[in-house]
Design a protein around this nucleic acid. Sequence first.
DNA 1: TTTGACCCTGTATCTAATACAGAGTTTAGA
DNA 2: TCTAAACTCTGTATTAGATACAGGGTCAAA
Lengths: 134, 134
Amino acid sequence: MLTRGKLATQTGCNIETIRYYETIDLLPAPARTASGYRTYNDEHLRRLNFIQRARSLGFSSEQTRGLLDLTEAEGNKTRADVKSLTEAHIDEISQKIKDLQKIKKRLRQISSFCDGSGKSASTCPILESLFEDN
Amino acid sequence: MLTRGKLATQTGCNIETIRYYETIDLLPAPARTASGYRTYNDEHLRRLNFIQRARSLGFSSEQTRGLLDLTEAEGNKTRADVKSLTEAHIDEISQKIKDLQKIKKRLRQISSFCDGSGKSASTCPILESLFEDN
DNA sequence: TTTGACCCTGTATCTAATACAGAGTTTAGA
DNA sequence: TCTAAACTCTGTATTAGATACAGGGTCAAA
């Protein structure tokens, strides 16, 4: 049983953003106290954590909703539907991982080059490589 | 020597977004023809590709600018500065990769469970695991 | 029992991107 | 060469996703 403020604190989510997620139906409307205060439960907490993770990884609200919906296919989706949806997401995620690894590799090259002391960074030819494709 | 339309086609970027990136100084203003048409070069192409990749991976415009600036430290940053900046980015990227791998692992579980034929997805208990933390 | 910290709603603002309108330019074909 | 389609220009409007703020009610602890 969490207030909106506590949910915000525990997730690191902006308090207003929680209300926003409710208006776009990404986070289900919680129960209310007699005086109208929202009362969140652990399910909200878990769901909000997931939403934040997904959003920070570049998934749109709609894509995030798609991922969440996989957990809530209420008998109106067959396993085959879920499977193909899931595999599409897996492909997308694999590509994101590859891209991040590419960027990370380049940053590692920069970092190790910069171990050499002195001089300005502009003399570092490896920086240029950040843009290449492989 | 690319027109804005060709740059858009080659990168898959929306043509208006290219102009937008110019206004927020994420993409440098290109040369112009006598009649005012923008003429982009290969450097713009590479840079825009990088921007798109970074944005799709959840980096904000400012963070993307930070990554790009690593390549353009014009003597006003020391190697040590670049190194610490770079390593901060590496940490952040490593965390993103971990998060994606977590989600991917769960999706793989869902997918393999759904190989079992028939029934509705709501009978799939593994779906629930998507929210856990490890 | 009051006062500071919290919550409510509605609305405004901000960033990132995209769309559109009205006008000029380029280019390929009749 | 002329013209019509396709493109570009600028300025502005709209959208999505969030975040901020104002004006008022509620809660808790001193």
